[in-house]
Design a protein around this nucleic acid. Sequence first.
DNA 1: AAGTGGAGTTTTGTATACGAAAACCACTCT
DNA 2: AGAGTGGTTTTCGTATACAAAACTCCACTT
Lengths: 234, 234
Amino acid sequence: MDDYRQHTAEETAHPEPRNPVFEGIERAIHEQRLPPGTRLAEGELGEIYGVSRTIVRAGLQELSHAHLVSLRHNRGARVAQPSPQEAREVFEARELIEPRTAREAARRMTAADAKRLRAHCEEEKRALEASDHGRALRLSGRFHIEIATVAGQQTLCEFVEQLVARSALIIALYWSRERVRCDSNCHQNILKAMANNDPDEAESLMRSHLVDIHSTLRFADEPATKPDLRSMLT
Amino acid sequence: MDDYRQHTAEETAHPEPRNPVFEGIERAIHEQRLPPGTRLAEGELGEIYGVSRTIVRAGLQELSHAHLVSLRHNRGARVAQPSPQEAREVFEARELIEPRTAREAARRMTAADAKRLRAHCEEEKRALEASDHGRALRLSGRFHIEIATVAGQQTLCEFVEQLVARSALIIALYWSRERVRCDSNCHQNILKAMANNDPDEAESLMRSHLVDIHSTLRFADEPATKPDLRSMLT
DNA sequence: AAGTGGAGTTTTGTATACGAAAACCACTCT
DNA sequence: AGAGTGGTTTTCGTATACAAAACTCCACTT
């Protein structure tokens, strides 16, 4: 009666259709075309993507689970605005997880992987040189995700994906633009270590890369929250 | 016009209403009343919880994001059946993340926290002695989550929550019941280390606790998947 | 002039309707 | 008997309808 198959093969045949609202908004956030706090009305999104509110709703809920959108009952959705606290936590989590994925990737990396990542790095460099800020940031994020993929840890990879996406919002809010050039070099060095199958070096470079980004964030002295009467009187 | 407040205070006033389908099914999975592979038809769930399919659908999607339910296009939902590979990954992730939360919890633990956790441990022991398997497993999972909460890392805590929930399915599929008694003692030892504010000890105990559980899993030599003609012929 | 109240508008939350895909089942034919 | 087949039934995916909540804006009061 019940069919206890662990479907893995058939998956590829029936590509689960992705939600266009989710994809579009996620991409826009990655590329910083949607600033934190932007209101996302269901009807409007439905028109934009040519789907009904049913689909919009599903996409928004998905985005909310990924902490990219904040959903409040009866009040609709807006692009999330990670607090300084949340920003710190996201980077602490990345500093815990990604050195591990970098290490594992260094152990497993094949020549083909190395080639692919080198091409990716090149593209990233070009985007930076062309000052295509959005594209550069997105590619930079993808680099971290690719590493987790090479590491072959689907589970950690998903966490990294989420953390990278949230990082785009954090950078939009708290990045103090002193230097930007670091990134590309950092990535190239990490890649070199991985291509040499040097786990220790890859792990350590990844850690300092993340610490470096983290330390570049500047949290405004007072959180961007207006005084809230209610909370002051209770 | 736009209101850029980072809502944190008002949240408590308007408690976001939780989805009853999500809550019910998650709990049932935690307590192993729903075996992996169980079919979850939308209409049926709607009747059970007295809501329309709209709500059921939202709940199932949420569960699917948490990897507790597997959703296939046009074929409905079933309780997920983590593969051996996935099971390994989940525990590897836990072995990476939870020693950190245990360490952090040990640093931050207050007397009140310690008291709360001791009560929790007691309850866990009682459930075990009463052979209330489901309750014991749920409480055991909650212990790990409580630790992440004490560590004050909301972000990592969410990851732990997800991993703990998935672990319930993994245990249902792959647990070789040799000893069960370990758990309660392990938790008490970890708690002791944390109450003594001994981060090194807490971290190390947590790590070996997880490795211990992980090593108790027995993956059937062949995965519980029936031969799939289609995939063999393409 | 600033604050208050309330009608009208917009937007959200949920149920329902309907076409389409899959599952089921009885039946036939080899 | 068992595999194939056609029609029926169930279940899913999406759009839509409708009620309730929130928001807007303007007239009114103090």
